[in-house]
């Protein structure tokens, strides 16, 4: 698997005519009305659009948290729509890292234990787990904060812990849902620099949802969503 090569020709993620409908009949709500997106390994894609344009739904589908109503979603060539709930959980565990707007760290739990969590589910033994979690925290600039619980960390620091948690498993793709939505501009720029460095130096594929053009400018590609469709695409600041 060449997930970390930016030059790979076969796409890591491939959406073909993906639709998502919530509800039925008159009450049916079309969240996605046929989306085609290809994301190559090592890419950095920002998804923009107004509320209700379908970017979050798209993100949930990309993260294998949700399945498309129709259309095809291939991850590494595997049709995700055909997978069971457990198989999708294993896909998330082994290939996908999540960063959320609300950080979503475990409360009353140290930064280290938060970062260790995905490694526990992967069955990594204690000592290796510990080392890797410390390394991941160091990589996001949080050496020395290992034993602090989330309530003792600032928002920016919490989001760094969340990024460390997402990256500690060395996922094929990092999915970030408005990672800077709860942060001030200075903190947001720091986080974006961090993500950009992960993408540039480690070649991690990143897909990010954002409202702010300033943040989207860090990506290589910016995809615009409108009414459940891809309205257009433009290269980002680094593209």
């Amino acid at each position: 698997m060449n997930a970390h090569s930016a030059t790979g020709t076969s796409p890591l993620i491939s959406l073909r005519n993906v639709t998502k409908v919530y509800g039925q009949g008159q009450a049916a709500m079309h969240a996605l009305r046929g989306i085609d997106i290809d994301i190559a390994p090592g890419d950095f894609v920002a998804m923009m659009g107004p509320s209700g344009s379908g970017k979050s739904t798209c993100m949930n589908i990309l993260g294998c948290l949700d399945t498309p109503t129709a259309g095809s979603y291939r991850f590494e060539g595997v049709e995700v729509g055909a997978l069971s709930r457990n198989q999708r959980a294993l896909l998330r565990r082994n290939f996908i890292g999540f960063v959320f707007q609300g950080f979503n760290l475990l409360a009353r739990t140290s930064a280290l234990e938060n970062v260790e969590l995905p490694l526990i589910y992967r069955g990594i033994p204690l000592i290796r787990r510990h080392t890797r979690a410390c390394e991941a925290l160091a990589a996001v600039g949080l050496s020395g904060w290992e034993s602090h619980s989330s309530s003792e960390l600032s928002g920016g620091q919490q989001q760094r812990v969340a990024i460390a948690r997402a990256l500690v498993t060395e996922p094929a793709v990092l999915l970030a849902d408005e990672p800077t939505g709860n942060l001030d501009t200075a903190r947001s720029l720091e986080i974006m620099e961090l993500l950009k460095r992960c993408n540039g130096e480690q070649g991690i594929t990143i897909v990010m949802v954002t409202h702010e053009a300033e943040m989207a400018a860090f990506a290589r590609r910016v995809v615009h969503f409108l009414d459940g469709r891809v309205a257009g695409e433009q290269p980002g600041g680094t593209g």
Binding site: G63, L65, R85, N86, A89, L90, L91, R92, R93, N94, I96, F98, N104, L105, L106, A107, L117, P118, Y121, R122, R165
Partner: peptide
Amino acid sequence: TREIGIRLAIGALERE
């Protein structure tokens, strides 16, 4: 609930 959501998103299986 949120914690369970985090665990499931991270890749915890239902039985775990």
